[in-house]
Simulated assay, not measured.
Amino acid sequence: MKARIKIPRKFYVILLASVVAICVFSFTIGRELYAGKTESIFSFGLVHFSGYLFFLLMPVELAFIYYLPFYSGLEVIAVALATAMVAQCIDYGFGRLIRPKRIFKLMDREKIVKAEHKIRQYGMLTIFVFNLLPLSSPVIALAAGMLHYRFKRFFAVSAFGLLLKYLVLFWCFS
């Protein structure tokens, strides 16, 4: 009798996240490029929002840089901030509402434990730095929710870090 290979649940989560990310890119930027149309701000918003969800980690800073020539800096920064903050609020809410054991089944336990440790050790500074730099801020948002970190403080520090990041990117690439 042949032994069956057990496929871990995380594999299916990664596969699903990859399929969703590919679909988001295909149905937005890919379709516009294929049709020869100008990139729309809606496409940017959808890609950017998706990239800030904790289970779809994508390099959203590259999308920001890519869309800068097509729209004014103020428009791109406003859409980037709005979509990132909505997605981060969703990540925070998931962390707050879903039991940690369920989250650990979906994501790498070590990543979340490290994020929790950094938040406990450095608090607002961790949230600020992870939003300022192209690091995994959605995981930090999830961990902040799991720790029941004060939402108003989390929101304000995240928004400030993201605003500074996008201002610097605008300044460097416009």
Rank of each mutant, 00 (worst) to 15 (best):
K105C: 07
L97I: 12
F154M: 01
Y149Q: 02
A156E: 04
L169W: 04
F104I: 00
F128V: 03
L97R: 15
V60Y: 11
T38E: 15
P100H: 03
A82T: 14
G36I: 10
R120L: 07
T38F: 10
P134A: 06
M1H: 13
L53F: 07
P8A: 01
M107Q: 07
G73E: 05
A115T: 00
Y67Q: 06
M1P: 14
L162H: 10
W171V: 08
S136F: 01
R31P: 07
G161C: 05
I127D: 00
L142G: 00
S137I: 01
S26P: 02
R31G: 06
K152N: 13
V129F: 08
M1F: 10
G30A: 09
A156D: 07
K111V: 00
Y122A: 05
L68F: 09
G73P: 10
L169N: 04
R4P: 08
L15G: 14
L132D: 11
F151E: 06
V76Y: 08
F154Q: 01
A80I: 02
L133C: 13
L46G: 13
E116F: 00
L57R: 03
P8Y: 02
V157K: 04
P100N: 08
K118Y: 00
K165L: 12
V76M: 07
K105E: 15
G73W: 10
G123H: 04
K111C: 01
F151K: 01
K165I: 06
C172V: 13
V60T: 14
R102M: 10
L97Y: 11
A35D: 15
A3K: 15
I90K: 07
V24L: 08
L106F: 13
R31V: 09
E110H: 05
E39R: 14
R120W: 01
G123C: 03
A3N: 11
L15S: 12
A87M: 07
F173W: 11
F173A: 02
A80H: 05
S72A: 10
L15A: 13
F27Q: 07
G30L: 09
I140Q: 01
F54N: 02
K111W: 01
C172K: 15
R150P: 15
F94I: 04
A17V: 09
F94D: 02
A144Q: 02
V60D: 11
T83D: 08
V86I: 15
N131F: 02
V76N: 06
K152I: 11
F25G: 10
A141P: 05
C23I: 12
I29K: 12
L167A: 10
I127E: 00
F128W: 09
S40T: 15
L33K: 12
D91G: 06
C89E: 08
R96E: 05
M107H: 06
F128C: 03
E61F: 09
V86H: 08
H148P: 06
V13G: 06
L106I: 14
F25H: 14
F25I: 11
L132K: 04
G95Y: 00
